[in-house]
Design a protein around this nucleic acid. Structure first.
Lengths: 357, 357
DNA sequence: CTGAAAGCGCTTACAG
DNA sequence: CTGAAAGCGCTTACAG
């Protein structure tokens, strides 16, 4: 028996120099060249503690030397799960999508995971089926749900049902906090309100996003609550629901600014709508910030491109994406103890000033 | 023999009702249930012509019935190539990236392919190695090269060397046209020049992108050539090289607008820099379009958000992305006969007017 | 701490 | 036009 073992070893060693150069090294090459079984190599790949330290070091040195990297397709097939993270989103602003992607990629860099993008239309009837096919067919390791897709409970339920792990990004806890990144939009809006109050504004108006969006609801609530804490109540005519789009912002601003008594300040649920306010003000000859203060939400590139540059609530989207992805690729059971959240804060630029009176 | 065959058939049929429900159907299930070999099922999956029509139809009906979809991981492992398309880009505008992604996804929809994103930094020394690792490790089916990454010949050479198919998107043919989508930036810039000339402008200035970018070079050349065709030569002081960024646009505009003799019109290599021109003009009290006409390039969302809205050259980025992806997933040898290209065209808005004199 | 056998769900190479 | 055998590069389940 011992003899046989020895001969096998020898054979392995002699093969060492003959590994074909054209083809990338496989787990078999590594096992053969380092004189261990492929199972041991597999344990090393998967960071199993059940490997002696010197064995591990010897094998890892060889891996580096030959530039070995395990094949994600083979691993995926055996694991019955790929090394792909999906990002599911429903047509938010381009900059927001891109920031979220960059953030996720920050977390995936150096790991074996890659990011697969999956935009969808949450208003189309078959969209949940589409995500389901995507997840099951690709055997995704997990999926990041970006607002507004993240706000759809039916989508999360479907993923739960098919056993796909996910992280939901939302303005408040909609789910088990271990699968959430919370963006605290309420606080961001409150900071905008406090800022306008501190400048002395009392006749303030609000252009909100669609009430069906949790983010819009949270920002509105945060803003109104902060005003009420200082004893100011917004009359209904000062609150206009719009659609998070530039055009809807224009329409809302026309209602607010072209009447007889206009507010001295406007807070909008995102920067796109703030750009709409700018357009109406410019056209009507209303000077920002002298006659009208404006605060947006997003701190998109648009905020600094506009003139005067727009004071806006920064969302730290890249951090959000990074956190969401990091949660998904964390080894099981090693979940973070604290709740994942990212805090917004106000970026002051040139669009606000104390009211004239 | 016949008897044995029959008994096997029978056995297969009786197994039909006992396929475990918990687990997704595999090629073996389909083969067994439809009484053909798995190789035949494989032929059907891969659209091989070597299958009798009725066999194909019978098997396809079964696939639909049980909701069978082949496992991309298993296929990838056997093919030694995944069903992933990579998109490689170097920090262009968010909207541009997103449009490109949407376009690529348009082409991939309904196919077995998915899109994996890979932003990179072409100025960092190791970036080509990074793309190489990405491509080889994931065994990508192909990769879409977006400007400016697409303009780097060393990157294309590396991909060629490792045998990775790619499509380069660029303003002109940098490569074998079968692996290019050409965006004809020269023509777009020429259209901008013709438009300004048609309004009567003669003292025109140009803010270009970095000369190391082919897109910037092409747009500049297209613009200058079009002016020369009408007998107008731009003096060097009227051409300022900037960095494609808002801030660099501001700096360039300050040189052009705050001197004694300012031009009556400015063409910028992208919309970001046009926004910089707006800022300087606004601050200096120069009325656009009355005292200054401005034309941008990109037709980004910014163009309609600015006030007055910006006349700009539309790039049809989504079409570009769709074309690039379609080329990559086309069956071999079935390459298009005509050269893939996407034409830009001018979108006229409110930022231009005949000069005052 | 280590390994031999079987299997993940497909395709290739060969045979008929 | 169809199929049986071997293999892609890993992991799981089991044994020691």
């Amino acid at each position: 028996m011992v003899c046989k073992d020895m001969s096998l070893r020898k054979k392995a060693d002699s093969d060492a120099t003959t590994r074909p150069q054209g083809r990338a090294a496989t787990i078999n090459d590594i096992a053969r060249l380092s004189g261990v079984s492929k199972k041991t190599v597999s344990r090393i790949i998967n960071n199993s503690p059940l490997v002696r330290k010197d064995t591990r070091e010897k094998v890892e040195a060889l891996m580096r030397e030959v530039g070995y990297a395990p094949d994600p397709l083979a691993r995926g097939l055996a694991f019955r799960r790929s090394f792909l993270i999906g990002m599911v989103y429903d047509n938010p602003t381009a900059q927001y999508v891109v920031d979220m992607q960059y953030g996720a990629l920050d977390a995936l860099r150096g790991s074996s995971f890659e990011l697969v993008v999956h935009p969808c239309d949450t208003r189309s009837p078959g969209y949940i089926e589409g995500v389901k096919r995507f997840v099951q067919q690709q055997k995704l390791h997990g999926v990041i749900l970006v607002p507004r897709a993240s706000e759809d409970q039916a989508l999360a339920d479907m993923l739960e049902e098919i056993g796909c792990r996910y992280t939901r990004i939302a303005s408040l806890a909609l789910d088990d906090t271990s699968q959430m990144v919370i963006t605290h939009d309420r606080d961001g809006a409150a900071e905008a309100a406090d800022y306008l109050l501190s400048l002395g504004h009392r006749d303030i108006a609000l252009i909100t996003g669609p009430s069906a969006y949790r983010s819009a609801h949270e920002r509105t609530a945060g803003f109104i609550d902060a005003l009420e804490r200082r004893g100011i109540e917004l009359p209904p005519a000062r609150i206009i629901e719009a659609g998070y789009t530039f055009e809807s912002g224009v329409a809302a601003a026309e209602k607010l600014l072209l009447g007889k008594q206009r507010p001295t300040a406007i807070f909008t649920g995102n920067d796109e709508m703030a750009a709409g306010v700018y357009k109406v003000a410019m056209r009507a000859g209303i000077n920002i910030p002298r006659e009208l203060s404006v605060v947006g939400y997003d701190d998109s590139p648009l905020a600094s491109r506009l003139w005067p540059s727009l004071t806006s609530v920064r969302r730290n989207t890249r951090d959000t994406g990074r956190t969401a992805a990091a949660m998904l690729i964390q080894p099981e059971g090693q979940a973070a103890l604290q709740i994942a959240s990212v805090r917004p804060h106000l970026i002051v630029r040139d669009s606000c000033q104390p009211p004239l009176d």
